[in-house]
Simulated scan of single mutants.
Amino acid sequence: MANTPLMPKATAVWLVDNTALSFSQIASFCRLHPLEVKAIADGEAAQGIKGLDPILTGQLTREEVEKAQKDPNYQLKLQGSKVVVPESKRKGPRYTPVSRRQDRPNAILWLVRNHPELKDAQIMRLVGTTKPTIAAIRDRTHWNSSNLTPSDPVTLGLCSQLELDMEVEKGAKNLPQPVAGAAAETLMPVEDSTSDDAIAAAFSFGTSKPKREEEEAIDADAVFAKLNSLKTADTDADSDEDSAAEEVEEADEGVEIEDAGSDDDEDNEDNK
C-alpha cells in the first residue's frame, strides 16, 4: 500500500521503544491492529525484530512525532519519499502467468480484428507472444482457430489499458495520412452544397418535376404509337389470312368441279 511505511512491524517496534505515542496512533500509522502493537510493547510479539527508525528513512519528521505526542487524537502522516527510483525498462518478451497463457490467442485475435494498425512487434509487447503465433491467427492456420473467441487483452489481464492506448497511438501514427487534395476533389464547398439548387436536386424539387412529366408524356405517346402499329399489323395479318383462305376454298371448288366432269365422262362412255 502507498500509505504503509516500509517494514511496518520494525517501525512499530522503534516507535514503541523510543516515543510516547499511544498504541492506536502507532497502529494507525503502521497499519496494524492496536492489540498487536500492545503485544509488541509487552514483548509477546515481534521478538527478535530490530526497530527501524522512520525519521532516518524519511518517513516521519521529528516535528510530526512531537505533535502527535502532545495530542493523543492526532494521526501521524507518512512523508513522501524524496528519492525517485527510475523504472527499469523491461527487456525481452512480457512474462505471462501460466493461468493466462491459454487466453493469449483470443487476445491476439481481438487485437488483429479491432486494431489492424498494430504491427506484430506491438502485439508481441502487449500480449507476450511470438510472430509465428500471430501469423497463424491472421491466416487462420492456428491449430485451435475454430474455437477462438476475440477477447479484450485488458479484460483478460494481459496488459493495461494505458499500454494498449499507447501502442494504438503509435500504430495510428504509422498509417498513411490522407492527401489534402483528394479531399478537396471529392467534397463540395459549403456554399454549393447548401444552395437552393442543390437542395432542390437532392430532394427532386424545382425543375426536376416538369422534366419527369415531359418524359412520362413522351413515353405515353410512344406507347400509343406502338399499340396502333400493332393493331394495324394484326388487321393486315387477318386480311391476308382471309384472302388466303378464300383462295384455298376456290381451289377446292375447282378441284370438285373437275372431279364431277370426269365422273360424267365415264358414265357416258359406259352407256355407249
Score class of each variant (00 low, 15 high):
217 A>E: 07
218 I>W: 05
218 I>G: 04
219 D>W: 05
219 D>H: 08
220 A>K: 14
221 D>N: 12
221 D>T: 11
221 D>L: 15
222 A>N: 08
224 F>D: 09
225 A>Q: 11
226 K>R: 11
227 L>P: 00
227 L>A: 10
228 N>D: 14
228 N>T: 11
228 N>K: 15
228 N>I: 12
228 N>Y: 11
229 S>L: 15
230 L>E: 12
231 K>C: 06
231 K>P: 00
232 T>G: 08
232 T>V: 15
233 A>K: 05
233 A>W: 04
233 A>Q: 07
233 A>P: 00
234 D>W: 08
234 D>F: 08
236 D>C: 02
236 D>M: 07
236 D>N: 11
237 A>S: 08
237 A>F: 03
237 A>M: 06
238 D>P: 00
238 D>W: 10
238 D>Y: 10
238 D>K: 14
240 D>G: 08
240 D>T: 14
241 E>N: 07
241 E>W: 09
241 E>L: 10
242 D>C: 07
243 S>M: 09
243 S>W: 10
243 S>T: 11
244 A>L: 04
244 A>V: 01
244 A>Y: 03
244 A>H: 01
246 E>V: 07
247 E>P: 00
247 E>T: 02
247 E>R: 05
248 V>K: 05
248 V>D: 02
248 V>P: 00
249 E>R: 00
249 E>F: 00
249 E>L: 01
249 E>Q: 02
250 E>N: 09
250 E>P: 00
250 E>Y: 09
250 E>F: 06
251 A>F: 01
251 A>V: 01
252 D>W: 06
252 D>R: 07
252 D>V: 03
252 D>Q: 08
253 E>S: 06
253 E>G: 01
254 G>I: 05
255 V>N: 00
